[in-house]
Computed example of a mutant assay.
Amino acid sequence: MPLVSTGELVSGARAAGHGVAAFNVITLEHAEAVALGAERTGAPAILQISENAVKFHGGRLSAIAAATAAVARASSAPLSLHLDHVTDVELLRAAHPEGFSSVMFDASKLSYGENVKATADAVRWGHERGIWVEAELGEVGGKEGEAPLDAHAPGVRTDPAEAAAYVAETGVDALAVAVGSSHAMTERTASLDHGLIAALATAVPVPLVLHGSSGVPDEEIRRAVASGIVKVNVGTALNTAFTGAVRAFLDAQPSAVDPRKYMAPAREAVAETVAHFQQFMA
């Protein structure tokens, strides 16, 4: 089916009191697995390509974007294409010609004032081209190249009043908030502040986004959606499933050299993981 816009998926989920899951794509097999998982559950999904994934592909966005979009269009599930954690303005500007309906512009490492200015500029650019723009306020630690961050440290979590002011000043369409999760967690031990999520949902007029959801236990995700989170980002859990399946296959068959033999179970493991996370969106 045709690509659906991220804004449409997120606004629809919010209106229904549901969540919508966004899954990171690194390889073609990731994209195929997300589509398979979404088809099996009948739920929509967002396929997102991060700036780090683009770097993995030699800094070239076109090929992985075109392949991911082709997979989405061939799927029977409602799927959108999202460019994630963009810090490079040139990459931001590449989103529109490559068919992305949305971008997460990440100026969270900047001071508050610099973050507001850079994000407002990105929002103006995006809205002129019909692109839905997500941003981040607070510190969701664990991004590649960063030291681990204590999600419970003072000053780390998103303040509701500051978040409301930030949204008003920047005009963003969605806000990623720091409420206890962290990127790149391989164990699902994060404890979320559901009171803070509810306070943010009341204070902020746009949908809230949970980054680092791979490290959040099932029931915590379910509660987060009930408390006001709308977009739920999942990345590391897919890679854990993918790599685990490849490792298990090669441990059992160490002489195997045909990548199709071990990529097939890896793709299936990711599809199963996608389907697992989809059950907490409603």
Results as ranks from 00 to 15, higher is better:
Val4Asn: 02
Arg14Cys: 00
Gly19Thr: 12
Ala21Ile: 00
Val25Ile: 11
His30Asn: 13
Glu32Val: 12
Glu39Ala: 01
Glu39Met: 04
Thr41Ile: 08
Gly42Asn: 04
Gly42Leu: 00
Ala43Asn: 06
Ala43Gln: 10
Ala45Met: 01
Ser50Trp: 10
Ala53Trp: 12
Phe56Leu: 14
Phe56Ala: 10
Gly59Phe: 03
Val71Gly: 02
Ser75Asp: 03
Pro78Arg: 05
His82Ala: 09
Thr87Glu: 15
Val89Trp: 15
Ala94His: 14
Ala94Cys: 13
His96Ala: 15
Asp106His: 05
Asp106Asn: 08
Asn115Cys: 00
Asp121Lys: 00
Trp125Gly: 09
Gly126Tyr: 08
His127Thr: 03
Glu128Tyr: 09
Arg129Leu: 09
Arg129Val: 10
Ile131Val: 10
Glu139Asn: 15
Lys143Tyr: 13
Ala147Asn: 11
Leu149Asn: 08
Leu149Trp: 00
Ala153Asp: 08
Ala153Leu: 08
Ala153Met: 06
Val156Leu: 00
Ala161Leu: 05
Glu162Trp: 09
Val167Ala: 11
Ala168Asn: 11
Ala168Glu: 15
Glu169Thr: 11
Thr170Lys: 01
Val172Trp: 08
Asp173His: 14
Leu175Val: 02
Ala178Asp: 11
His183Ile: 10
Ala190Cys: 11
Leu192Asp: 09
Asp193Arg: 14
His194Glu: 07
Leu196Thr: 07
Thr202Val: 01
Val204His: 00
Leu208Phe: 03
Val209Lys: 07
Gly212Tyr: 12
Ser214Thr: 14
Pro217Ser: 01
Val225Leu: 13
Ala226Ser: 15
Gly228Tyr: 06
Val230Trp: 09
Val232Glu: 09
Asn233Leu: 01
Thr236Phe: 01
Ala237Asp: 04
Ala245Ser: 06
Val246Ser: 02
Ala252Lys: 09
Ser255Phe: 09
Ala256Trp: 06
Asp258Pro: 13
Arg267Met: 09
Arg267Asn: 06
Ala269Asp: 13
Ala269Glu: 12
Ala275Val: 06
Gln278Arg: 03
Gln279Gly: 00
Gln279Tyr: 00
Met281Ala: 11
